[in-house]
Every structure is written in C-alpha cells, then in structure tokens.
Deep mutational scan, measured.
Amino acid sequence: MGFKLLSKLLVYLTASIMAIASPLAFSVDSSGEYPTVSEIPVGEVRLYQIADGVWSHIATQSFDGAVYPSNGLIVRDGDELLLIDTAWGAKNTAALLAEIEKQIGLPVTRAVSTHFHDDRVGGVDVLRAAGVATYASPSTRRLAEVEGNEIPTHSLEGLSSSGDAVRFGPVELFYPGAAHSTDNLIVYVPSASVLYGGCAIYELSRTSAGNVADADLAEWPTSIERIQQHYPEAQFVIPGHGLPGGLDLLKHTTNVVKAHTNRSVVE
C-alpha cells in the first residue's frame, strides 16, 4: 500500500471513529477524501466538511520552486461564519470567499490569524475590503508590521502568557507558548472536538522541520505538551499544512522538532 493511500485511509478511519463516538456532533463529509496538494491548482481553494458547521479550507501556493498546501478553518456561528487564517495570499483568499459563498452561503463576518507569517495573514486586506472584521493577538499584529505583512485590524486580548485561553464565538483560542513562531495560536472547536494546530503542528508525513527561522526550538516541545494537557479530548487535529489526523500529530511534531534540534547540535 502506497504512503499517500495509507495517509488518506488514516484520515478516513479517524473521521469514521469520530462519527461513531459522537453521532450528534459529527456529520463528516462523505463526498470524498481530504484534498491534497496535487489536486488543488494554485489560485483555487477546496472546502472539506469535518463536522456539522465545521470545515477546513485548503489552498496551495508556490514557494521556492515548489507547491505547498495550506489549511485553515471555518466555523459556523449562528447565521454567520468565523474564518481562521487566510488562504495564503490575496488571490487565494478572494477564491476562498467565493467558494464559501458557493458552498455554504453564509457571510464571513470575523477572521482570526493564528500567527504573523504570510500563509496566515496574506489576504487580510481582501477580507477587510469584503467587510470582514480581522483579528490577531497584539504580538501577531506587531510582528506582521515588522515583517511588512498585512496586519489584522483588531487585537485579541488575554493571550499574552503561555497557557492563556479565551473564548471567541464558537471557538476557544489558546496560546501554548512559542513553537513554530513566538505568537502562534491554537484554535479548538469544543462542539466538535476539532483542534486546529496551525503551523505549530505537523502532518504525519512530514519528517523535516522546514521553516524554523522564527521558531523557538527549545520551547516548542513544552508548548505541545500544554496543548495535549489542555485538549486531551480532541479527536480531529488539523495541521497548518497537509493531512489531518488525531492527537498523534502532536507527538510526531515533537519528535521531528527534537530530531532537528539534535542534528543542529551535532553539526
């Protein structure tokens, strides 16, 4: 069995187990497998329904001669939608809004960016022009300005110390501490036991640490421990890039980060 097929099978099995364990909360999309990078042309966006009122959005972007996937989250909030992270750029984010209108038909009224990198804030200006209120932590807003990236308009308070959590509509926002970046936030959907790890969490097929220019490698494993301790009931975990899975993604990420750190020390 090929690795790609095995990865998709694991996603399907995880979703099936969740649907059985929580039949009222989960209505997993039966329309197909989780979209992969090879299936999404740059400039297009796919939506994948995880649970009743919960979707991931998947886009792709060219970077350094390669094409990478990027995940975000959409959560229903009454007759409105909360968006977590842009679709990595203005063109993708405009396509995301169009796809949401086509498939869901509810307005996106608020959006949260989970850290300051372009795959999370690139497209904020498109959201703002569409009347979406954009939010991020003060740290993310400051770092985005320093980096020359787009800056969300509103500040999220109460997320300055490791372990801080605040309720934001249908989700809980959690600051686990520094990891992929010093400002990275985690998003949890309690009604569906869905954990969105953003770039602080890796997919299972990833074996290298990737972009760690703004990471705190020493603190990252401790931050992941905080996530595990705060959300032990999480059933569906979405990484910032690639295929979702279960809580095993947290341990896998820790292993990859520690291996990278150990290699760096040896070198």
Rank of each mutant, 00 (worst) to 15 (best):
F236M: 09
E33G: 12
W88Q: 00
L83C: 01
H260Q: 09
V54Q: 03
P232T: 11
G148L: 09
G246V: 04
D118C: 04
L5H: 09
T261E: 11
G148M: 10
A130L: 08
S16Q: 14
A200E: 03
E33M: 08
L106I: 13
A209S: 08
T261H: 09
Y68T: 14
K102S: 14
H241P: 04
S16A: 14
L13C: 13
Y34Q: 15
V187E: 04
I201G: 02
L156Q: 03
A192E: 11
Q235R: 10
L195S: 00
D79L: 08
T207A: 13
S161K: 13
F116N: 03
L10M: 10
D64G: 14
S160E: 14
I201A: 02
V67G: 15
L250Y: 06
E267H: 11
K102N: 12
P244V: 09
R142D: 14
A234S: 09
G197S: 04
P41L: 11
P69C: 06
T207L: 13
Y175K: 01
D77N: 08
R120G: 02
P41C: 04
L47M: 15
P244R: 04
A215C: 05
L156P: 05
A213M: 11
Q61C: 04
A200M: 07
K251A: 10
A19M: 14
S70M: 03
V166N: 06
V132F: 03
I238P: 04
P152H: 03
A179G: 10
G53P: 05
D85H: 04
H260K: 11
S7D: 06
I186A: 10
G148C: 04
E80K: 09
N71W: 00
R141D: 03
I186L: 09
C199H: 03
L185M: 11
A209V: 09
G197F: 02
L247Q: 12
S162M: 09
I20A: 13
E157A: 10
G197T: 05
S160R: 11
H230F: 15
D64C: 05
D79P: 09
H260G: 13
Q229V: 12
A95M: 14
G78H: 09
S161W: 11
W55L: 02
P221D: 07
A178Q: 09
A200F: 03
A136K: 05
K258H: 11
G78Y: 07
V42M: 07
A133K: 14
V67S: 15
W220D: 01
I224E: 01
V54K: 01
L10E: 13
V189D: 03
G169M: 03
G163F: 06
S162H: 11
Q49R: 12
